[in-house]
């Protein structure tokens, strides 16, 4: 039995509130990806979206009762970190901001 089809409980309500909060946070971070204004801002926002996705996966693991989703969280955290470091090396290599 998962939290989705179970009886109404405090944990179920807080899981739904958590889903809503993390979703709003991802939308806010995406606004920062779109408006910039500089490249490092966008990279930072993408890094935060990766972190938020990890917490979304953790929430979904609780709500569905399936602990295997946490393996996906490990992989996602690793890829997000590597992506941020690669982007930072690229920014440093490129030098001055062309459109700061």
């Amino acid at each position: 039995m998962t939290l989705f089809d179970g009886p109404v409980s405090f944990l179920q309500v807080s899981a739904y509130v958590g889903f809503g909060g993390v979703t709003i946070a991802i939308c806010a971070a995406f606004v920062r990806v779109v408006v910039g204004p500089s490249m490092p801002d966008r990279v930072l926002a993408l890094d935060l979206i990766g972190l938020l996705s990890v917490s979304l996966i953790g929430l979904y693991a609780i709500a569905s009762g399936e602990s295997l989703f946490l393996d996906a969280a490990i992989a996602l955290a690793l890829i997000s970190f590597l992506g941020t470091v690669a982007f930072s090396r690229f920014i440093e290599w490129r030098g001055e901001e062309p459109d700061a």
Partner: peptide, 28 residues
């Protein structure tokens, strides 16, 4: 269950605070 629910609510709050800070603070 109650402790886990409170932890989830606290986590969602801090996640929201971080996104709000990312959106509102003045420089990188």
């Amino acid at each position: 269950e109650i402790v886990a629910g409170v932890l989830i609510l606290a986590g969602a709050f801090f996640v929201l605070v971080s996104a709000l800070g990312l959106l509102r603070l003045p420089d990188l």
